[in-house]
Amino acid sequence: MTVLDTRALNRATLARQLLLDRSDLPALDAVAHLGGLQAQEPQEPFVGLWSRLRAFDPTVLSTLLIERHVVRTHLMRRTVHLVVADDAVAWRPRHDAMLRQRVLGVYRAELDGVDLDELAAAARALVADGEPRSMPEIGRALGERWPTAGMRALGEMAIALLPMTQLPPRGVWRSKAGARHVLLSAWLGREIAPPAAEGTDPVGQLLVRRYLAAFGPAATADLRAWCGLAGLPATVAAMRDELVTFRDDRGRKLIDLPDAPRPDPETPAPVRFLPAFDNAILGYDDRSRIIDDAHRGLSVAGERVVLVDGRVAATWTVDSGTVTVSPLRGLSRADRVAVTEQGQALASFLSDDGSDRVRVGSSPR
């Protein structure tokens, strides 16, 4: 079985994540290709697409959200993702059990004695009028029925039990609006199908293909780290005739789509600035293809990072229009020039006045 070393996996990841060369894909197609963008920080998807698309116009993404072509919803890993509407409708039923269990994992004691079917029915009756509500509002209203349960627990479980979406202006370019929720079916004018019958997993197979197209080659543990779903090894086993296999240099079995890009490991990789919680890092259980183990915690802490030669080499922040880069290791003169150039372009993108102020630290953090 062919072994793919870390650099080979890195270049495959960059190619599929549209980070090896900026793409001409329309924003809607890019969101679909990437399987959505993690978006609990509402402005971060704009930086994610700016780093991946040529001539990206953030108002286009805002319009897609306002016109209901993309939605903000709790999905993979029970985190808020910006996904195309078709994927939200198709994927949400497959995530039902995971969403419920993850809320219970946090709030089991506070929800003790609450019948979840009754909670779902009460929550549905509450939001049936179509009035957008915040999670605290939902929790307080449900607290009248379950006064001993935690209101936050009730609100979070309601949103896990019912397919909901966060409405714009939340997630609109340069908006700071709070999260207000309505039923996904009401917002899109489409019914959400119930989960598939036990023993079948057509949506799981679709998720495997879509994940590999955007993240492969990868192990089943990586697949689960991306979506949080159980039962996928059996789904992958049922697809074995349409997949190819490799091993990484840690000995793990990797699966992939036969015709997906696997570039030459020596392909040059440009500097890229990634937003907080970018799935190019979080979409794997073994993230060593893109970030050193010593810095793995940065990705879950919400640090924004800079890729140099395809790997996390710095963090970045923006304040008062200035992008500040803090290296995690020494950077060559050429790397510093490239980081500065990309930082200036990012500062200009983020600023109101087109300014391009950037500061690159002189020593590792």
Rank of each mutant, 00 (worst) to 15 (best):
D5Q: 03
R7S: 11
R11I: 09
T13L: 15
A15N: 13
R16F: 06
L20M: 09
R22T: 11
D24S: 14
L25E: 14
A27P: 06
H33I: 08
L37N: 03
E41H: 10
P42V: 01
Q43E: 15
W50Q: 09
R52F: 04
R52W: 11
T59A: 15
T59V: 14
T63P: 02
E67S: 14
H74I: 07
M76I: 05
R77M: 01
R78A: 08
V83Q: 00
V89D: 01
V89E: 03
D96N: 14
Y107A: 05
A109S: 14
G113N: 11
L116C: 12
D117N: 15
D117H: 15
E118P: 12
G130K: 13
E131F: 06
E137T: 13
I138H: 02
A141T: 10
A141Y: 03
G143C: 08
R145G: 11
P147R: 07
M151H: 13
L154F: 04
A158V: 06
A160N: 01
L161N: 01
P163G: 06
Q166T: 07
K176T: 15
A179L: 07
V182H: 08
L183M: 12
A196C: 15
A197L: 11
A197C: 13
E198K: 12
G199Q: 05
T200E: 10
P202F: 14
P202L: 14
Q205R: 15
R209L: 10
F215Y: 13
G216F: 02
G216W: 00
T220C: 12
A225S: 13
G228Q: 06
G228W: 10
G228D: 09
A230V: 07
A237R: 11
L243K: 00
R250C: 13
D256F: 09
D259T: 13
A260R: 01
A260I: 02
P265N: 13
E266L: 11
P268A: 12
P268V: 09
P270G: 04
R272M: 04
R272K: 08
F273W: 03
L282Q: 04
S288R: 08
R289F: 13
I290M: 12
I290A: 00
D292I: 04
R296Q: 08
G297S: 12
A301M: 08
G302T: 13
R304E: 05
V305S: 00
V306F: 03
L307D: 01
V308W: 00
V308H: 01
V308K: 00
R311A: 02
V312S: 00
G321E: 04
R333D: 04
A334I: 05
E341N: 10
G343R: 01
F349T: 08
G354P: 12
R357I: 03
R357A: 05
